[in-house]
Design a protein around this nucleic acid. Structure first.
Lengths: 204, 204
DNA sequence: AAGATATTGAACACTGTGTTCACTAATTAT
DNA sequence: ATAATTAGTGAACACAGTGTTCAATATCTT
């Protein structure tokens, strides 16, 4: 049951299971997927499935974990700031790289975002982003030295929720709009704020 | 099976089912909930459940629909703007009222946000917000007359994702922080933008 | 080539589903 | 109040999916 094994048969079987699983998730809700479905799509015996995973939830767990750790490595908030100044080119470059990563792994993310039965994927993904962010943000030199602690707590949640929502929308639209375009608008929202980005001013 | 019925027995039974259901969702994943669990918590026969709902998914559907339509009525974006100007007091008042609504219906929202097995709740809720927003935003008078269409598409998604994320975080923290405090920070983000809200400036 | 290990497929008990049916209880209409 | 109507009960049933076991077979490793 150990996740590592060099036996060819094991590797082939697991790859077949995971690939068949992702394919099935494009068409059919995770809720109604049966082990029989997965086994026959992967062309293995039903009993064989149980030699590798306790149940379909563990399989999902493994697939998610793999997908998320690959994703999180693209994320280095620390690089986008220098001495309390944001570096615009790096920020837009980062936003674009995020979108490209999602495009490259669209099969995985479409399954995760849009399959009706996947539990808590957004939350899990967000948690991973937040953890990484927290770890890196402590090393940041802040302007003025002191920052409002509540703002420091709220903002990462605000931003990660917003970004995950946007990426999900973009995938849902089949990546219709070039990532450069989207990234540019996001940058505007970041720098000017949502209201001004739409052209609003404020009443005194 | 019609959703409306004035028969006392029917109303009592349905109320018992829905309340037991929400209670169970606080402790146990929707995935592993059985009709038997629900029936015995609601103190009805298992067969009786099927007189009212096709399966547990339809029950969930009904409960969600009820919760969301009550929520969406608290939302009147149209009121927060006047002739291309945002009205600060109204915006903060609105943000606070959102948080209060979630506090008042915490049993429902905790189940929906944090129960492992609820499928796609965030997405569904977001869609309802977006639809309402779209319907109202057309009536808005925009500054300069013309607005970047892509920005107009992206921003509602950005904001609704962010807000849903924040509310969910706030509930998860057991509403530790007064809604006035949170609303004030959100207002800052809206007006100054995320980066400036943290005190960053920009390199040319 | 021999030994080790993974896969197979059939069988098994078990749990939950969704339906039916005759019976009883509660509600509504007269 | 009583009759007519409708809802709830509880037991039985067939069915589908689960997770396990076991001897036989296939495939890898050394």
């Amino acid at each position: 049951m150990g996740s590592e094994s060099t036996d060819l048969r094991v590797m082939k079987t697991r790859a077949a299971i995971q690939s068949a699983f992702l394919d099935l998730l494009q068409e059919k809700s995770f809720n109604v997927l049966t082990i029989k479905d997965i086994a026959s799509a992967a062309k293995i015996g039903r009993g064989t499935f149980y030699l590798h995973y306790v149940d379909k939830y563990e399989l999902l767990e493994m697939v998610i974990e793999k997908g998320l750790s690959e994703t999180i490595d693209h994320f280095h908030p620390h690089d986008y700031f220098l001495d309390g100044q944001a570096i615009p080119e790096r920020i837009t470059a980062f936003i674009q790289s995020i979108f490209r990563h999602f495009k490259k792994n669209a099969r995985f993310f479409k399954a995760m975002f849009f399959n009706e039965g996947i539990p808590m994927f957004r939350q899990r993904m967000q948690k991973r982003f937040l953890d990484k962010f927290q770890a890196e943000v402590r090393q940041l030199a802040f302007p003025n030295g002191s920052v409002d602690p509540l703002m420091l707590e709220i903002l990462p949640i605000f931003l990660s929720s917003a970004m995950i929502g946007l990426v999900s929308w973009w995938l849902e639209q089949h990546m219709r709009i070039p990532e450069e375009e989207v990234a540019q608008r996001i940058f505007l929202i970041f720098t000017r704020g949502p209201l001004r980005a739409l052209g609003f001013s404020f009443k005194a």
